[in-house]
Design a protein around this nucleic acid. Sequence first.
DNA 1: ACCAAGAATGAATAACCATTCATTCTTGGA
DNA 2: TCCAAGAATGAATGGTTATTCATTCTTGGT
Lengths: 225, 225
Amino acid sequence: MTAMTQKAQHKNAQTAATQNETKKPRKILPREERRQQLIEATISCIARDGLGSTTMQMVTKEAGLSLGIANLHFETKDNLLKETLRYVAEEYHSGQIAIMQGQETEDLTSRLTALLNFQLSQGVTQRQKMAVWFAYYGEAGARPVYQKIVSAWDRAAAKQLETLFEAIIEDGQYRNIDAADLAMGYSALIDGLHLALLVTPRELTKKQAKAIAKDFLQRAFPKHL
Amino acid sequence: MTAMTQKAQHKNAQTAATQNETKKPRKILPREERRQQLIEATISCIARDGLGSTTMQMVTKEAGLSLGIANLHFETKDNLLKETLRYVAEEYHSGQIAIMQGQETEDLTSRLTALLNFQLSQGVTQRQKMAVWFAYYGEAGARPVYQKIVSAWDRAAAKQLETLFEAIIEDGQYRNIDAADLAMGYSALIDGLHLALLVTPRELTKKQAKAIAKDFLQRAFPKHL
DNA sequence: ACCAAGAATGAATAACCATTCATTCTTGGA
DNA sequence: TCCAAGAATGAATGGTTATTCATTCTTGGT
């Protein structure tokens, strides 16, 4: 039985759960690692139980650590939640921007499909991430600080997308298309698809979502797709 | 001063705020009216303070009533929140469905634009409503009951939209268009636009949002718009 | 005008939660 | 090997919240 426990040791909270009577092999880690570990535990809790009912106890238990540790590393719960949002926002938006800036002189079409594939990739569309994303959106109206955290990244990504669309419009000599409006529409479509994947996964597969987003771009840029 | 208080009596929470020392003109109303009043107070609280930090005290104060009243009429807070979601969901989805069923033999195009205008109408896009909407979506991942409340209406609306799109595709003899996918895409776009109007109203006006949604339909159904 | 039914009130209760900090434990350097 | 620095723990604290229910008030029917 003890052997099984040993074998089952990943580095997640299950460890804490399966520990029966062996007291505590307390571990000390550098600040940044602990912070990251706590942020990931927070993401899991928000995804499983919602932002509203996530408690410090749940987060620290999920991380397999003691109650006080989150306050030690993040000062307040509020701060932990802010940092968690910052982490998720940065991961998503910096990924997008990296693709759009596309150092390599890839053609516009492949940059566009790379973007689409990233936005609906396995990594981005896993329930954990989308749940966190929309949990924060849900509170954004009441908590300006959440908007502020996201908006900087958001504007940057929007600008990049607009630039990419402008280049495509120029390249294809498309008429009667406003790059800004189209970029806003495409972003809204992606957000809406994420929401549908989260809330009604039965009605929409990831493959379908990709096809829908691709259709949108095809209708706008028929010469490129 | 007493006269002013009397005169200022609407039936909202301001009454309670302006009451200085006059104790309590307690009012008795039929069950359904009180329930509706409490639901509307709940909507205001969620929009102002978020779903997570909305308390019974805030809701009953907003309604200008005593603390215990919400439990009297809704049994539990959980139930009040569920009924509030049900109300908002029904208002939105039944409005949509009414337009799409369109008893009058309007042509397809005007039914389509009527739908679009409703979905981005003043009534639907007011912060109060959208904030509530997304507050619940934010918790939907963790609270299946919320999904259940919305999903019935959602499926009905999706079916209707699909039928409308099929009729338009048939009427215009459009090729290579899947009604179901297009309907899903359009719905996602509308949701995404609502989200953008809520979270980044600075970046998107309602007029713009309408133009973007119209563009989407124009590209799909050029002969009809 | 009077009263019983039941609507409304709000003080009291019990549960829960974020945060603190005295104490215990770990570890890198001497 | 040994120790000081500081990382980690978790019991204790103070504040907040949903819910209850004894009491008070309103009103429609007589």
